[in-house]
Simulated scan of single mutants.
Amino acid sequence: MLSDPEYAGLTPQRDYAPAGDIVVLDPPVWFAGAGSDFQARMCDAMSNALQGRATASSAVERMLREMNRFLETPNPA
């Protein structure tokens, strides 16, 4: 289907097709994934920096603290 010329002419599909060449998946850990607490905490740290309420370096430090907290927590499953 992806190689079908009709598909290649669809909008917006044709605009997103190259993204398949650079797929980045979530790490294989229990706490990551769409809608997870991990995602929310990372986004919160980044959004504070993007909105000027925190520096980039403090956002990275916060993200690292949050990641370490998750890594130190045993898998509940």
Rank of each mutant, 00 (worst) to 15 (best):
P5L: 00
V29P: 00
D15W: 10
T11L: 08
V23G: 05
F31Q: 01
I22H: 06
R41M: 05
T11D: 11
A32M: 07
A34G: 08
P27M: 10
I22S: 06
D21Q: 11
W30Y: 12
Y16M: 10
D21H: 10
Q13S: 14
A8F: 15
R14S: 08
G20F: 05
G35Y: 01
D4A: 12
D26W: 14
P18Q: 04
G20P: 01
L25K: 08
F31N: 01
G9L: 09
G33S: 04
A40N: 09
G35H: 02
V24T: 09
A17Q: 10
D15S: 08
G9Q: 14
P5S: 02
R41I: 01
G20R: 02
D37N: 11
D21M: 09
L10H: 13
P28H: 01
Q39M: 05
F31A: 01
R41G: 00
D26P: 11
G33N: 04
E6D: 13
G9V: 12
G9R: 09
Q39I: 04
A19H: 11
G33C: 04
D21T: 13
A8S: 15
P28M: 01
D21F: 12
S36L: 02
S36R: 00
D21A: 09
I22C: 03
A17N: 08
Q13D: 14
A17S: 08
S36T: 04
Y16V: 14
L25G: 07
T11C: 07
A32G: 06
A17W: 14
A8V: 15
P12T: 00
P18K: 02
P28L: 01
R14Y: 11
G33M: 03
Q39Y: 04
Q13N: 14
A40Y: 06
P28Q: 03
R14T: 11
P5K: 04
D4I: 14
F38H: 03
I22T: 09
P27C: 10
I22K: 04
E6P: 07
L25D: 11
L10G: 10
A19I: 15
R41E: 05
Q13T: 15
V29T: 04
E6T: 15
S3F: 08
L10I: 15
Q13I: 15
T11V: 13
P5C: 00
D4K: 13
P12K: 00
I22L: 05
T11R: 08
D4G: 12
A19R: 11
E6F: 14
A40L: 08
V29I: 05
L10F: 15
F31H: 02
D15M: 07
G35T: 02
A32F: 03
